[in-house]
Computed example of a mutant assay.
Amino acid sequence: METTIGPGRGRATPLPPDERRAAILLAVRPVILARGAAVTSRELAEAAGVAEGTLFRVFTDKVTLVREAVLAAVDPADAIPEIAAIDRTLPLRDKLLLLMTQAQAHVSESMRWMSLLHEVGRLEPAGPTGEQREAAMRQWGRRQQAGTAAVTVAVSELLDLDAHQLRLPLADVIELFNTVLLGATIRTVDASRRGLDTGPPAPEQLVDLILHGVLTPISSDRSS
C-alpha cells in the first residue's frame, strides 16, 4: 500500500492513521478549491500522491473526502502560525493592521470553502451518509470552538505587551476586534448578494475605528 503523501511517490515510512488522514486533507485542498464539487477521485488521488484505492481505505467515498477537506480548511487554528509570525515588538497599530489583513484574507478564503460545502451537500445521498454528515458537522463545531479559543490565546500573546495602553481589558479589545471584523464581513456579503462589488473595508479604516472610534479628537484649547 502506498503511504507517501504529496507530489513525490514511492515507498516511505507509513504514517500513523491520524497523520495520514490530515496529510491527505491538506494535500487535496488546492485541487478542490480549483475544481469544486466536480473534482474527480483520480484528481484527488494524484494531489495526495497516493493510489485511489489507498485514498478510499482512508475515506469512505469522494464526497466524504471533499467535505472533510473543506471542514478542515476553515479551522480557525490554521491562522495561528501567521499570527505567531508577527513581530511582538511592533507598534500596536502595526500589529493590529497585520492581524486585520490576515483575518480578512482568512475570512474571504473561508467563504469560498463554505460555498464549496454547499455544493458538496447537494451531492450527498440520504440515509447513513446523511447521519455521518451530521456527526461530522458536530465534530466540526467542536473543532471550530477549540480553534477559536486557540486563536484568542495567540492574539492575546501578541498584544500582551500593549495591554497597558488600552482603556479596556485585552479580552474585551479582542472581542471588539472580532465584532468589527464580523460586521465588515456581513456588510461585504450582503453587498455581494445585492450585486454590489464594494469589497471589504480597508484594514486601516477598521483598525483606526477600533483604536480611536469616530469622534474628532478635542484639542486642549477647545476643551478649556
Rank of each mutant, 00 (worst) to 15 (best):
R194V: 06
E68V: 09
L166A: 00
A154K: 03
T4W: 13
Q132V: 13
V70R: 02
G141Q: 11
T101N: 04
G121E: 03
F177L: 06
L209T: 06
I80D: 05
R167W: 08
D190F: 11
A47K: 03
W140H: 12
F177T: 01
G49E: 09
R112H: 13
P169E: 03
P128S: 09
Q139T: 15
L25V: 01
A149K: 09
S108A: 09
I83W: 01
S41E: 10
G195R: 15
V66S: 05
T60H: 14
A79I: 05
G36M: 00
L159W: 02
D208N: 08
R20E: 08
L26F: 11
A23M: 06
R29V: 05
A126M: 10
M111Q: 14
L26W: 14
L117I: 06
Q132F: 13
D75H: 11
G213W: 02
Q139H: 15
I32Q: 00
R142E: 14
I210Q: 03
L71S: 08
R138F: 05
R93A: 08
I86T: 04
R187K: 11
I24T: 04
P81Q: 07
T185W: 12
A79C: 04
E131R: 13
E68P: 10
I174K: 02
R143F: 06
V107D: 10
L182M: 15
G36P: 02
L90M: 12
E204P: 07
R222T: 11
L96F: 04
L33V: 06
S156M: 08
G147P: 01
I86D: 05
P217A: 04
E82R: 14
D78A: 11
Q144T: 10
I80E: 09
S219C: 11
T89P: 11
I186R: 14
D87S: 05
A191R: 13
L176A: 07
M137C: 12
D78S: 11
E204N: 07
V66I: 07
R42K: 09
V120Y: 00
T40E: 00
S115I: 10
P200T: 10
E46R: 15
E2W: 12
G36W: 00
M111N: 15
E19Y: 08
I174N: 06
M137A: 08
T188C: 15
L166I: 00
T198A: 15
